[in-house]
Design a protein around this nucleic acid. Structure first.
Lengths: 230, 230
DNA sequence: GTTTGTTTCAAACGATCGTTTGAAATGAAC
DNA sequence: GTTCATTTCAAACGATCGTTTGAAACAAAC
């Protein structure tokens, strides 16, 4: 019952198995969701034995965590780097700059690897953020909170007229626009004929339009909350 | 193998079973997703026998369809009504009016029934729109396309400077902001302590902020697509 | 009261799920 | 070449899944 491998700090000569499982799991979780994907399909697609997944990751939940953490940590680390640059520049932060702090670190996921298809992890991310399952919520909490808690005050300085609750609501709307667009872009057959959305833009352009949308949405004048009571 | 009941056109004296199954399925699908919810849990929560679900709806997939259609049709019917009013008014359509055409018919789902909690169907809707499973895609296609195909040209008249592909991308971003915000508002424990988003607004105010965000996002000047080629 | 069609019920079916097991294979250390 | 820890493999475990079945309960028509 000892841990299989403390951490993949160095790259052993043939660690392919672990990464192959992660890659296959990422695709399956993206397409079928956590419950829809099965350990058997994942390991079969990875070309490894079924027990290998349990050996490396313990159980399905931990595998999902590993899939999510592998990519989200790199994205959020870059976001925090960019945010610190903005904070240290001395100049007052602007909305377009901060929106790009959020979006730019996702760019390579949006534009895809080689096939031009956006990365399936985008769908994983949208599912995870949306799912009320407890372990996913604490996963999101643990991975997203450090960046968001740092972003919020800086965004507040860029939008000094917005009350904090409204700022939070707009940030949430922005995340929805980003995640939803990314997940739908990345869907298999996302550009098929007879599709709901005609005349889709290529991912590169769709990303620019999304930035336009989010910047304008964030920078709009404060909402006059209608009537506090009847 | 004959159909159980052609349609609930008239309300028989004790049709409770069918509706109870739909209500329980809606909650379970919202919380656990299509694969995570089981027919046994659904029928148990509804207080009916397991086989009753298969008798009334055939199979799980058809049950999901029934859950989705029951509410989305009412929403989209009201949207189309509102849209026709705008078209017939003779006045040129404006972005705020059209955003409210989309959002207002969802208002009672947002504000919840009695407990103040937003309706669980909002989570069902977000899941359905996001899921690449084929039967959900054609469900979305069948239910959403009539309204969206009617909305698009009118929205184009309100935003004559926007190329159609960018308009579509922005509409998609708006749907993401709406669905994501609604789904997270409606989550169980959505306002719990230690939550990702602090200082949440009440649903009524969150809806107004969302409208502000979407109107500004749609109405922003056209994006200058950077470079068509390298 | 009998009949007919509808709806419910408990039980079971085969399939698939996540997980575990113990033996075989593998590669580095000595 | 032997030893030792690591990693893989085929097989099986119990549980749960969606669905089906045939008898019982029920309401309305005659």
């Amino acid at each position: 019952m000892n841990d299989p491998a403390p951490a993949p700090i160095d790259a052993p000569l043939v660690p392919a198995t672990r990464e192959r499982i992660l890659d296959a799991a990422e695709r399956q979780f993206a397409d079928l969701g956590y419950d829809g994907a099965s350990m058997r399909q994942i390991t079969a697609e990875a070309g490894v034995n079924l027990a290998a997944a349990n050996y490396h990751f313990g159980d399905k939940e931990s595998l999902y965590r590993a899939v999510f953490e592998r990519r989200i940590r790199a994205v959020n680390a870059r976001r925090i780097e960019r945010l610190i640059e903005v904070e240290r520049s001395g100049q007052p932060p602007t909305v377009p700059v901060l929106v790009r702090v959020v979006i730019d670190p996702m760019r390579e996921l949006w534009l895809g690897s080689a096939d031009g298809q956006p990365h399936p992890f985008l769908r994983c991310m949208a599912r995870t953020l949306l799912d009320p399952q407890p372990f996913m919520r604490q996963l999101v909490q643990a991975e997203m909170a450090p960046f968001l808690q740092r972003l919020l005050p800086t965004l507040g300085r860029a939008l000094p007229d917005l009350p904090l609750p409204e700022l939070v609501a707009r940030l949430q709307a922005m995340m929805g626009a980003i995640l939803f667009t990314g997940a739908r872009l990345a869907r298999p057959g996302g550009g098929a004929t007879g599709e709901l959305w005609p005349a889709a833009l290529p991912p590169e352009s769709a990303l620019e339009v999304l930035i336009t949308f989010c910047v304008a949405g964030l920078a709009a004048p404060a909402t006059s909350i209608p009537r506090p009571s009847a």
